[in-house]
C-alpha cells in the first residue's frame, strides 16, 4: 500500500467493477473538496471491509478531500464518491463540506478569512 501511495497511478480497473455497477453515491453528492474522515465505527470495521473500502477507511483516519483520496489511492474521483457514499451510508465515514446554500454574509466572512490567511503567508 505504501508503495502505491508513493507512486500513485490511476487504477486500471474499470470503475463499474469497483462500484458494483452503481453510478451515484448512496448518501449524497460529494463536492470534490469535501473532507472525509473515518469514524470510530469505521476504524473497528476496517478489517472486515473489501479492499477498496478498507483503503479509504485507513487513509481517512486523518481528514482528506475526495480529490486527495482519489490521488493517493490512484482512483478516479467518481469512484471515490461512490465508495465513500457506501461508507457514509454505513456510518464509517463523516463528510465535512461547505453547504451549497450558504448565505451571503457567511460567504463574505469565509472569503475575508481566506484573504487574511493568504496575506499571512
Amino acid at each position: 500500500m505504501a508503495d502505491e501511495r508513493d507512486h500513485p497511478t490511476v487504477s486500471g480497473v474499470r470503475p463499474y467493477l469497483l462500484t458494483g455497477g452503481r453510478v451515484r453515491p448512496v448518501a449524497r453528492h460529494l463536492p470534490i473538496e469535501a473532507q472525509l474522515m473515518t469514524t470510530p465505527a469505521g476504524q473497528s470495521a476496517s478489517g472486515r471491509l473489501t479492499y477498496e473500502h478498507r483503503d479509504i477507511v485507513e487513509l481517512c483516519r486523518r481528514p482528506y478531500s475526495v480529490a486527495e483520496v482519489a490521488a493517493h489511492l490512484g482512483l478516479h474521483t467518481g469512484v471515490v464518491r461512490v465508495l465513500a457514499g457506501d461508507l457514509i451510508g454505513l456510518g464509517y465515514l463523516t463528510v465535512h463540506a461547505q453547504p451549497r446554500m450558504t448565505g451571503r454574509r457567511e460567504r463574505e466572512v469565509i472569503i475575508e478569512r481566506v484573504i487574511r490567511g493568504l496575506r499571512a503567508i
Binding site: Q35, P63, A97
Partner: peptide, 12 residues
C-alpha cells in the same frame, strides 16, 4: 495533520 486531525471547512 492539518487542523490537528479535525476536518476543516474546505473551500476552493
Amino acid at each position: 495533520g492539518p487542523g490537528g486531525g479535525r476536518p476543516l471547512l474546505p473551500v476552493k
